[in-house]
Structures are given as structure tokens and as C-alpha cells.
């Protein structure tokens, strides 16, 4: 559980009926079919789901790298769809940190860790009123203290991922988006990375969104949102899984239930005593089986 008393410096995220369509020569692909998602400032969540479910698309939209085809993406008070390229660039340089999948892809291979952090801070450093931690402090935060002069190629895999995290938080963003930070890491490495994320969240109150296939990462972060077929299908909180009612009233059944009741199955909806019961029927007025 998140410590309610900690000062929140993070940004809240709100997605309302977000749709994104990729237009290509072979045809249009609906990557997101109406995502409703709210993330509180300072919250840590994991985005989980099968490949092609739309997780990476959603995180790309949250990073301002693309604009949604429909719907609204709010980062704090900023409506991503209404910002210009220059404003989004400034936002990414000050408020939104992004850690790409594959640690090495986040770092300039020929520059030291300190230099990489410095580069990531240039935009924020030029902004009035922004106070930045020096690179050594940031490296301490992710457990890489004293390695400012190291090149990414000199670090073990787990350390590389933490170095990527350091670059991601270098400008002191309110929102940190991390894509598969624990893939190709062993358990120890995974734990180091998750610990680093928790530390950042605890000390800075940064809102953290992590895309991951690893269910344990989702559990440790406290909230896991499942994206399926371009929608938010379920959420896991405090070890319990919940289906989520979408903005249009739809609800996604868990996969194990969907197996018994394929698409097209008719249900009657009974509501009583604060609970909702779905009873399958055959559509001709007959009583449920």
C-alpha cells in the first residue's frame, strides 16, 4: 500500500475512451479500442497483457510520442492531444520520463552514465524554477552510486537497467513510463530494478507506469491493469483481480470464463444485494439452464 502521508510530486494520468488506429498500406489496425484508465498522482501501476494487446501503444501515447486517434489523454493538467510538438517535447524534457525496452537503447554507448544523465537534464535545467539532482545523487537513488564514469557496456544487465532508470528520472519527471524493465533479467536483477522503482516512487512521489509480462512485478507494484484487445480488461489490486467496467458499459470477462462462454453468448443481468449476477440464456424467453 502506498504511504498516504508521503508528499505527492507525481502527475496523475487520465485516459478517457482512448482509441488509436494505425493506418498502413495493408489496412488499418485498431490498437486501442477505447481505453478508460485513471492513475492517481504518485501511484505505481503495471500494465500487463498479451503481445499485441495495446500496452506499448498506450505507453507511447502517454509519452506523447503519438497522438490518440480519438479520446483524451491527460497527463496532469496537460491534454496530450492538444499540445504542439514543441510543448510535448518540453513536457518530455521536464515532466515525463521514458525508459524504453532494452536498457542499452536508453543510453548513448560512448558517453558515461553521468554524461547521459546530464543530457537528459538539459531541457529541465533550462527551465526556470526547476531544481535538479546532480547525476551522482540520481545514480545513488537507483543503487549505482559511484559509477558515474562508467559506460553502459561496462555494466552487468541489472545495472544497465538501473542506469536506464536513472536517465529516465534525471529531469525529475512527475510521470515515469517504463517498458519491460525486467525482461531478460534474473530474479536478483528483477528485484534490484523493482526496488529501484519503489525507491524512486517513495522518495520523489513519481507516478510510475510499468509495462511488463511479469505478474510478480505487477503484484509488487500494487496495481496491475490488464490490457486485452485494446481495452482495459481487468485489474489486480492487493492480490485480488477485478473486472473493470469500461466507459461504454462493457466489461471483459476473465479469460478462463470466456472459454466457457464464447463471444455471442446471451446473459441476463440480475442485480440484487449490491451484486450483479450474469445468467446465460438462450434468447427465446426460456428460463436459464
Amino acid at each position: 500500500m502506498r504511504d498516504e502521508t508521503r508528499a505527492t510530486a507525481g502527475l496523475a494520468v487520465n485516459c478517457r475512451r482512448v482509441v488509436h488506429i494505425y493506418r498502413g498500406e495493408a489496412g488499418d489496425v485498431v490498437a486501442l479500442a477505447g481505453v478508460d484508465l485513471s492513475i492517481a498522482a504518485g501511484e505505481m501501476i503495471a500494465l500487463v497483457g498479451p503481445s499485441g494487446s495495446g500496452k506499448s501503444t498506450l505507453i507511447t501515447l502517454l509519452a506523447g510520442l503519438m497522438r490518440p486517434s480519438a479520446g483524451r489523454v491527460m497527463i496532469g493538467t496537460y491534454d496530450i492531444g492538444k499540445l504542439s510538438d514543441a510543448e510535448i517535447s518540453r513536457l518530455r524534457g521536464t515532466q515525463i520520463g521514458v525508459v524504453l525496452q532494452g536498457a542499452a537503447r536508453n543510453l548513448l554507448p560512448y558517453a558515461s552514465l553521468s554524461r547521459n544523465i546530464w543530457l537528459a537534464q538539459t531541457r529541465a535545467a533550462a527551465t526556470k524554477g526547476v531544481r535538479l539532482d546532480d547525476p551522482e545523487r540520481i545514480l545513488d537513488l537507483v543503487g549505482l552510486g559511484g559509477q558515474g564514469d562508467a559506460l553502459v557496456g561496462q555494466l552487468p544487465p541489472g545495472a544497465r537497467q538501473r542506469a536506464a532508470l536513472a536517465v529516465g528520472i534525471a529531469a525529475g519527471p512527475g510521470l515515469l513510463l517504463v517498458d519491460e524493465p525486467t525482461s531478460q533479467l534474473d530474479t536478483a536483477g528483477r528485484d534490484e530494478v523493482v526496488h529501484a522503482l519503489e525507491t524512486v516512487n517513495a522518495e520523489r512521489g513519481t507516478t510510475i507506469v510499468v509495462v511488463t509480462h511479469d505478474g510478480e512485478v505487477g503484484e509488487r507494484l500494487g496495481r496491475a491493469v490488464t490490457i486485452r484487445d485494446g481495452r482495459v480488461g481487468a485489474e489486480g489490486r492487493g492480490g485480488q483481480d477485478f473486472a473493470v467496467v469500461a466507459g461504454d458499459g462493457t466489461i471483459q470477462l476473465p479469460p478462463e470464463v470466456l472459454g466457457d462462454f464464447p463471444p455471442g453468448t446471451l446473459f441476463t443481468v440480475d442485480r440484487s444485494d449490491g451484486a450483479v449476477t450474469l445468467v446465460p440464456g438462450d434468447g427465446d424467453g426460456a428460463a436459464p439452464r
Binding site: 518530455r92 524504453l100 531541457r123 533550462a126 529531469a171
Partner: peptide, 16 residues
């Protein structure tokens, strides 16, 4: 290209 994309991702100004 990736390197240039990375620099842009960090919000580095166009001039830089």
C-alpha cells in the same frame, strides 16, 4: 537514427 530519436525522447531542444 535511434540515437537521434533517443536525444529527442529526452526532450532536448531542437537547436541542441
Amino acid at each position: 537514427r535511434h540515437e537521434l530519436g533517443l536525444v529527442a525522447l529526452r526532450g532536448v531542444s531542437r537547436r541542441r
